[in-house]
Computed example of a mutant assay.
Amino acid sequence: MGPERERVPEWGHGRERAASPRERAAAVRDRSAPRARLDQPLDQPRVRRPRILPEYDPEEFGRLSERIARFLGTGRFIVWMTVFIITWLTWNISAPAALRFDPYPFIFLTLMLSLQASYAAPLILLAQNRQDDRDRVNLEQDRAQNERSIADTEYLTREIAALRMGLGEVATRDWIRSELEDLVRELEERRAVFPPGASARSDEGDR
């Protein structure tokens, strides 16, 4: 006999019917769902894998490289390096033969200087890259600031133009004075044509 088939209640009847393959697959998924959720990386902390290379902070290493590159570009480094090389050469030339650890042609000194150059060049390049990144960020900020300044200037220009247009329709002191002078002149002309005494005498004659 084959494996026992799961039986589910049949709708509308009191008996059970055999589960279809689709229903059995859905039941398997339902039973395996909690375990599948536990396997997701968001449900559990990620297991840290052992690293072969040592871990370091890129930001701290970058700051250290900038300090070293800044020191290499100073006159103090050149003076100390010159004193070191002169002392090295003087010791290996004038010291007794038994105490000379790097006789002529000073191969060990050459290797040390080559090692220093091989480390100094990448450190200087790293410091330059960090400086380029900062310059790029500063340039973007300056560009954004300039764009805001241009937008503010254009807005103020439009506001000033609107104020000028509005002031063109406002009555100014000179315009009011000229209108009052015209009214006074018109009243004087009417008074000259129709004097006040003439109108009184015409009223008495009518009586």
Rank of each mutant, 00 (worst) to 15 (best):
R76S: 04
P103V: 04
I85E: 01
D57Y: 03
I93E: 02
G75A: 08
I124G: 09
Y104G: 05
S118H: 12
E147G: 06
F106S: 00
L111C: 13
S65D: 04
A162V: 05
M112T: 10
E66G: 02
R134K: 06
S118E: 10
T90K: 04
Y56M: 02
G75L: 06
I86G: 13
Q128G: 12
V137D: 07
M112S: 11
I160Y: 15
I78G: 03
L123C: 10
A127E: 01
D57M: 06
L156A: 13
A161Y: 07
G62M: 00
E147Q: 15
E60L: 14
L167E: 10
P50K: 05
L72N: 08
A117C: 04
F108V: 15
I160P: 02
L53E: 15
V83M: 02
W80T: 02
I107E: 09
L64P: 01
V83T: 06
L125P: 00
R51M: 11
Y104H: 08
N146C: 06
L163H: 07
I160K: 14
R100C: 05
F101R: 10
R148S: 14
R51Y: 07
E154M: 09
P105T: 02
Q131I: 05
Y155K: 13
I52G: 15
M165G: 12
I68F: 11
E55Q: 13
R63V: 04
E60Q: 12
I85P: 01
R164C: 05
